[in-house]
């Protein structure tokens, strides 16, 4: 693969529209030119950001997320995953497909594992949501998290929060009783890095420690 470097071409630097020198001026000019300059106001920090647009179908929900009660006005179209990630700054749950096909967005609702991308945020009204951020007790990792480290059950780590949430549920469901069963019940969570051998070993290990093996 060495023969064809697909890399940055030589840059002919004669036709720059913005140079370092006029970058500051340009920065001001484009904001002024924006036909939606009013929206350029800085919003408050990401944690529990206000819904930045009025929508016909707004809803107010009350839910518990990682043990904290929350009342929030949402766009009725919002998925639980987008609520967590974009409004509540809980970015542990990942978007890998948005179609319920990869498991990267797995969280628990009332103790059951769900694909948060397929769950409308409105559905968690009155329910308890647990995400990867709420799994450890302070600085002490959940046995499943520790087992994932011990068995190197990850590479890029992108599927990992979903794998761990699914794995904890898998044990709680009583589906971690054999390697075959673990493999079957963990097959809704894709790991493209291919950490499956480590994931199975980690779940076996943690299940024993969780007393549900």
């Amino acid at each position: 693969m060495c023969n064809d470097p697909d890399v940055a071409p030589e840059i002919p630097d004669n036709q720059l529209l913005v140079s370092r020198r006029d970058a500051m001026i340009a920065s001001v000019a484009v904001v002024a030119a924006s036909h939606f300059a009013a929206s350029a106001r800085a919003q408050t920090g990401p944690r529990q950001a206000a819904l930045p647009v009025s929508v016909d179908q707004a809803l107010i929900i009350r839910t518990s997320i990682n043990g904290q009660t929350l009342e929030i006005r949402i766009d009725a179209r919002t998925s639980l995953l987008d609520l967590l990630r974009e409004r509540l700054a809980l970015t542990g749950a990942k978007k890998g497909c948005d179609h319920g096909q990869c498991g990267a967005c797995t969280v628990h609702i009332d103790g059951r594992r769900v694909a948060s991308c397929l769950t409308l945020a409105g559905k968690v009204d009155g329910r308890e949501v647990l995400t990867i951020e709420g799994l450890a007790g302070g600085d002490t990792l959940h046995p499943m998290q520790q087992a994932f480290i011990d068995h190197d059950a990850l590479q890029c780590g992108y599927c990992t929060p979903g794998q761990i949430m699914a794995a904890v549920a898998c044990v709680a469901e009583g589906n971690a009783t054999s390697r075959e069963r673990i493999r079957e019940y963990m097959s809704g969570n894709i790991c493209r890095c291919g950490a499956y051998v480590g994931i199975v070993a980690a779940i076996e290990d943690a299940a024993a420690k969780m007393g549900r093996g």
Binding site: A42, P46, G92, I132, L135
Partner: peptide
């Protein structure tokens, strides 16, 4: 394992 690693789409940027 704690979901604390920030991937590009996780970086919080106000506004």
């Amino acid at each position: 394992v704690r979901g604390a690693t920030a991937y590009a789409a996780d970086i919080p940027v106000p506004g």
